[in-house]
Amino acid sequence: MSDVSMSVNLGGLSMKNPVTVASGTFAAGREYSDFFDVSLLGAVTTKGVSLKGWEGNDSPRIAETASGMLNSIGLQNPGVAALREKDLAWLARKDVPVIVNVSGHSIQEYVEVIEALEEDDRVNAYEVNISCPNVDEGGMTFGTHVPSVEAVVSSCRTATKRPLIVKLSPNVTDIAEIARAAESAGADAISLINTLLGMAIDARTRKPQLARVVGGLSGPAVKPVALRMVWQVHQAVSVPVLGMGGISTGIDAAEFMLAGATAVAVGTASFSNPRAAAEVVEGLRAYCKEQGVSDVNDLIGALQC
């Protein structure tokens, strides 16, 4: 059969294929460019950026767990000015849309980061991070209550005309309620899941394996939870969903699209296989060919219950 049509539209963001990377696992792409051309991706999602830059958490920052890992990086980043000067300058030479992941300690900071980027035509969309479990202020504290979700998202909505993706935390009782709040406050798309709050202990030393004690769980271990939440959110809202959580193959990506995702992100898989994101693009294309699917959009929500 002829080539598969792979392009999708994620809340106003045109992507040549449905595959991006999960914020924080890929920096801005340069570190992986020895392994593949990042222009092969549907979009690059950059590491979370704040206004002035944050130092992040103490070490140890990661722990390996069964089929997964915990991280507690704490949104270390050099600030939005450095993102523009270095990362966006490098990405501008690539043929790939850029989603900037936006972080803040306060609603004001989220808005100021967007304002610092709004005139920069090297940015194509924002992903508002209201779900990082590794910071004391901001992050997940905004993403777990309906009123604060509405407050952050509506403030960011006012600050930009660009596609606004809101990244949700799985550490909530009712993910559909949070997704509906983000949609009604103006989100163009919903991304999920961020990491699941967890911990690991060294029984011999009786100490936690992470300096901050708790951290975010990612990798194949979280995939069933992520699929379930993508499926619930797809049923709860009408805006598109960017699904992620344990994706390492094209078949994983297809499963997320069947559950309702319009696009998908590859995260932790890049650590064990630096070509993982490119291989997911090819694996998804191969799946479509094998299944006789001529347009990848036909997979979205096509789960047969």
Partner: peptide, 22 residues
């Protein structure tokens, strides 16, 4: 030596404290 994830400079897992920051 630090616990490492990506090994290519992307994930910021393996930071060392230095006089010039992490």
């Amino acid at each position: 030596e630090r616990r490492m994830a990506c090994g290519v400079g992307a994930c910021l897992s393996c930071v060392v404290d230095t006089a010039d920051g992490k």
